[in-house]
Design a protein around this nucleic acid. Sequence first.
DNA 1: GTGCGTGTTAAACT
DNA 2: CAGTTTAACACGCA
Length: 259
Amino acid sequence: MPELPDLQVFSRNLTKTLKGKTLERIGLDITPKSGLSEKELSKTLSGKKLHAVARVGKQLCFDFGNDAQLFMHLMLHGKLVLQDKENERPKNVIASLELSDKALYLTDFQKAAHLTLNPPPSGAVDALSDDLTPKWLVEKLRGSRAKIKSLLMDQKVIAGIGNAYADEILWEARIAPESIAGKIPENAVKGLAKAIHHVLTDAEKQILKGHPDLIAGEVRDFLQVHQAHKEKSPTGSKILHATVGGRKTYYTDEQELYH
DNA sequence: GTGCGTGTTAAACT
DNA sequence: CAGTTTAACACGCA
């Protein structure tokens, strides 16, 4: 399952490859729960030029101009396949976009990946947005009784952080995942805001370095603590395992528990 | 064969 | 009521 830094790299590479191309045809093989139809997609997007592909939260936004933004959520197993138009179509296709000489397929054996057209803004602050300032985060956590890891992964609060990077960010900030959000002192919260930005942008750089043309899959071999078989953090502490918010969590006793 | 792992959603809980 | 937690979903893979 690709996470935010992977999606960031995908969006870069898709923009590089597809920018300026005209959408000639769009096909829907699975009707999404939203009821969005192939007809409506076609009516709104056909003939339009792709301006750019951006990452918004955990989604990719294909921007064809005003009121023509196609959002794509990969969910757990969604995969993009980009090939020349004449090649054979891949398996488990959810949707297909023909952009001049290229065909872009969204595939998912589990059929959970989906598209939406011009969705209303979610109200959450994107994890890499400039609006996610230390001050904003201090405000957001004030009075919250939720565990900090759950709150970081709450897409209605901050958009884009998944299970693996939540662990990485909390380790970087030296805050225990089960800490109660509202009990974390202001200084530590400010450090957390910096850790969010640092961990995510650094991960993007690492992925780009090793996999410059990536548009599918995920790379996380550089993660510091969220790795099933890793025994010690970079600073030599034993990596501990727990379940927080119903999710597998990796942490160390270097991280302070506030409660 | 068995159970893990993950994002979202709806339902349950406090 | 609003905020928070939990379980269910689907299924390839270790």
